Computed example of a mutant assay.
Amino acid sequence: MDVEALRTFLAVAETGQFQAAADELRISQQAVSKRIAALERHIEVTLLVRTSRGSRLSLDGQVFLPHAKKVLAAIEQAEQAVRPGSRPLRVDVLNRRTSPAQAVYRFYRSHPETELDVVTLSKENAAQAAQAVLGGTIDASFRALPADQIPAGISAERLLDAPLELLVGPGHPLADAPWVRPADLAGHRIWIPGIRPGTEWAAFYQALSEAFGLSIDALGPNFGDEVLMDALADSASLATLVGSGDRYLWPQTHDLRRIPLRDPTPVYPHVLLFRSGDQHPVLTALRDHLRTAGPRTPHDAWAPDWVDR
């Protein structure tokens, strides 16, 4: 059933005049007549009876009118529900401890009136997350997706570079270093459990290993951050890598050390994926916030060459 024909029928029913309905709808009287005729053909009854003083509802038209109003009201509610800004912005941050989650939280702190729905599609790789954005399951996702893998209909903006830090226990040889070079980590055991093949972080750490001659150990099950922190605290040789904006907590007695990497500074390039042309006002505000208030990329930043700047 033609929605515009329903709106036209309602306008004629309320005004009692085809010309008045045409003026209200900003169309010609001929267009009004065609829409009404098409609607009557569709439901196979006469809805309006023309008179010398205008038009009036037929008996069938009187029965049809309240149902037409309900249909149009339901359509208006459906349209309103998906208009930009009428629902919370749904953002995938991959992991609630990492830099994107903290950046979105800072944005919310500075814009408390905004409506956000923060999710973690942790089992999805970057390509699958992009498809989720494209399909409307989520509005945006922070990922490290190669430029040549960004699907049509998706825009990508590199808005958050997270510098890496070395995390070690107090007995590690580098525990007291103010900073270290990535090349200085060659020969040290770097343990990052839970790296899954086919994910963007697996590709990132592979590129990092090749660029600086590192040995990154992903063996063993991932029992969670707490177990990793316990292992670091008890080891004189074990280390891991974290983002400078990542939020991890451990007992004070662990005395873990976060050591910046410099010369160059490896950064994990969080790219915001969103549907091209998306006009959601919260998405626009988030992007503006990250451009102006987000952490600055170090001057000596290193990132894989497959990520678009």
Rank of each mutant, 00 (worst) to 15 (best):
residue 1 M to R: 11
residue 2 D to R: 02
residue 3 V to Q: 05
residue 4 E to M: 15
residue 5 A to F: 01
residue 6 L to Y: 05
residue 9 F to E: 00
residue 11 A to D: 03
residue 12 V to T: 06
residue 18 F to K: 11
residue 18 F to G: 12
residue 27 I to A: 01
residue 39 L to E: 00
residue 40 E to P: 07
residue 40 E to T: 04
residue 42 H to M: 14
residue 44 E to H: 13
residue 45 V to N: 02
residue 45 V to C: 11
residue 46 T to V: 15
residue 49 V to P: 02
residue 52 S to Y: 13
residue 56 R to T: 12
residue 56 R to Y: 10
residue 59 L to P: 01
residue 60 D to P: 00
residue 61 G to L: 06
residue 62 Q to N: 10
residue 62 Q to R: 13
residue 63 V to M: 10
residue 66 P to I: 09
residue 67 H to N: 09
residue 69 K to W: 08
residue 70 K to E: 08
residue 70 K to S: 14
residue 70 K to P: 00
residue 70 K to L: 14
residue 70 K to H: 11
residue 72 L to I: 15
residue 82 V to P: 00
residue 82 V to T: 12
residue 86 S to L: 08
residue 87 R to T: 04
residue 90 R to G: 03
residue 92 D to L: 10
residue 93 V to E: 01
residue 98 T to P: 00
residue 102 Q to N: 07
residue 103 A to T: 09
residue 104 V to S: 03
residue 108 Y to E: 02
residue 109 R to C: 08
residue 110 S to K: 15
residue 112 P to Y: 04
residue 112 P to M: 07
residue 113 E to Y: 12
residue 115 E to P: 00
residue 116 L to D: 00
residue 118 V to G: 05
residue 121 L to M: 13
residue 122 S to M: 11
residue 123 K to F: 14
residue 123 K to W: 11
residue 124 E to G: 03
residue 126 A to Y: 03
residue 126 A to C: 04
residue 127 A to M: 12
residue 129 A to K: 11
residue 130 A to F: 05
residue 130 A to M: 02
residue 133 V to K: 04
residue 133 V to W: 02
residue 134 L to K: 14
residue 143 R to E: 01
residue 146 P to C: 10
residue 149 Q to Y: 07
residue 152 A to Y: 09
residue 152 A to T: 12
residue 155 S to Q: 10
residue 156 A to M: 07
residue 158 R to E: 06
residue 159 L to P: 01
residue 165 E to Q: 10
residue 166 L to F: 11
residue 167 L to G: 08
residue 169 G to R: 02
residue 173 P to S: 07
residue 174 L to V: 10
residue 175 A to I: 05
residue 179 W to A: 15
residue 179 W to C: 13
residue 180 V to D: 00
residue 181 R to W: 03
residue 184 D to N: 04
residue 184 D to P: 01
residue 185 L to M: 06
residue 185 L to T: 01
residue 188 H to K: 02
residue 188 H to C: 08
residue 195 I to D: 00
residue 199 T to M: 02
residue 199 T to I: 05
residue 202 A to R: 09
residue 202 A to E: 02
residue 203 A to P: 03
residue 208 L to N: 06
residue 210 E to P: 05
residue 217 D to W: 03
residue 218 A to V: 13
residue 228 L to K: 14
residue 229 M to V: 15
residue 231 A to T: 05
residue 232 L to M: 06
residue 235 S to Y: 01
residue 240 T to N: 04
residue 241 L to G: 07
residue 241 L to Y: 04
residue 248 Y to D: 04
residue 248 Y to F: 15
residue 248 Y to C: 06
residue 253 T to K: 14
residue 254 H to E: 00
residue 254 H to S: 13
residue 256 L to W: 12
residue 266 P to D: 06
residue 267 V to P: 01
residue 268 Y to P: 10
residue 271 V to T: 15
residue 272 L to P: 02
residue 274 F to W: 11
residue 274 F to S: 14
residue 275 R to Y: 13
residue 277 G to W: 13
residue 282 V to N: 03
residue 283 L to D: 05
residue 284 T to I: 15
residue 288 D to I: 07
residue 302 W to F: 06
residue 305 D to R: 12
residue 305 D to M: 03
